[in-house]
Design a protein around this nucleic acid. Structure first.
Lengths: 214, 214
DNA sequence: AAGAACTGTTACTCGCGAGTAACATCATAT
DNA sequence: ATATGATGTTACTCGCGAGTAACAGTTCTT
């Protein structure tokens, strides 16, 4: 009970802040699950509040509006991917090796809530402002991948080809994980990520001309 | 002006039917465009009606409710894919060759309105009943692809592997076309379809073990 | 102890859009 | 000409959910 005098201000304030942060995050965690389950439009903030055993105005204490909540969810996912990309870019080895590591991390994120949310969220569900940022972040990720592919074409670890289309196709395949993956399924997220990254890496190489008929 | 007497009944009735059909289709054509542009939830039937220069009740003369319109749109796309699959399945050549043909047709459909609608439509936007059918049709398509992959593994035209995951990854890549493709872009739909099908076929083959380090 | 600042609730407003009722118009059928 | 029924319109109802105002209790500050 007798909280030390001096500390009190600083400590209690930051404690409050921590609480706030924790609660804000809890809102996002519950919101993203519901959005993934039922879709953004079909999820009311009353639903989200109910899951947290609180009422709607609480949510508005942490977020300005519903759009901001959705945007925050996708931003979380996108940031995770960007971090993964940065991490992979710094690894050693040729560009193909680094790309493979990147894809694996990327794929793993798509098995998780915030990653899923990115794919399940259509642009039109966001406000104009959020949509702009959403697209910018996605473009940024695409560029990282595309540049790594180009680097591979330069350093010889990846055969020449259309880096733009390749990056689109690869991202498409990896994003699709979030459409069917179920954590309760038989294969682990890690394993799936590994396999998908491998499929994508294969697609970079021209097919080994099947047993040439004749 | 003097329409022949006898024909009148039969002719006029079928003429009416043709008109009805044409109008119904016009509704679907306009609806699918709007759904793809703005999203299903963000598109009101008043919007659709306005585009057709009619009023909402007209739409309800052709469809029971909004859900039915959306379902009809995705059904059109799915049926197109199934037809493409059936066509490709009947072609000559080994399974890999037939699969390649199938993927190309599939990819082409994803550059078109009804194809795009399939991908942009989340399950939760459909009613329970429609969702069931939606999923069933998608599963059917997946099975066709998966079985063709398995056939390839049997006849030796495709290396052994996890047919389920391969079909998921391939469908994911191809579906993603509809997320960025723009008919006004520089590359033709046909060309894109060809390239994507090729990428997917490559992914079926284990990578040609890069210049084995050391 | 008084009051500032925060956390939480109940109980609204308000707009939007799905779906409909009631009415008007026009072609066809006899 | 006149009944039938198809096509189309205007003008509603009605529910839902985003967002808010007003109020209640609690905790930190001084």
């Amino acid at each position: 009970m007798p909280a030390p005098a001096k500390r009190s201000t600083v400590v209690s304030v930051s404690q409050r802040d921590l609480d706030r942060r924790a609660k804000r995050e809890a809102v996002l965690r519950e919101a993203v699950r519901l959005f993934n389950e039922r879709g953004f439009a079909a999820t009311s903030l009353d639903d989200v509040a109910a899951r947290l055993n609180v009422t709607k105005p609480i949510i508005y204490r942490h977020f300005a509006n519903k759009d901001q909540i959705l945007f925050e969810c996708v931003r979380m996912g996108l940031e995770q991917i960007l971090e993964a990309a940065d991490g992979a870019a710094k690894e050693s080895g040729d560009a193909a090796t680094r790309l493979s590591a990147l894809l694996r991390r990327y794929a793993l994120i798509m098995t998780q809530d915030f990653g899923m949310c990115i794919v399940r969220t259509g642009d039109h569900e966001l406000s104009d402002a959020s949509r702009k940022e959403f697209r910018a972040l996605k473009r940024k990720i695409d560029l990282v991948i595309r540049n790594m592919i180009k680097a591979g074409m330069k350093d010889g670890s990846i055969p020449n080809g259309d880096a733009r289309l390749l990056s689109f196709a690869i991202a498409g395949a990896i994003n699709s994980i979030s459409r069917w993956f179920d954590a309760k399924g038989s294969q682990s997220a890690d394993k799936i990520a590994e396999i998908y990254a491998d499929y994508c890496m294969r697609a970079l190489h021209p097919s080994p001309k099947k047993p040439l008929q004749r």
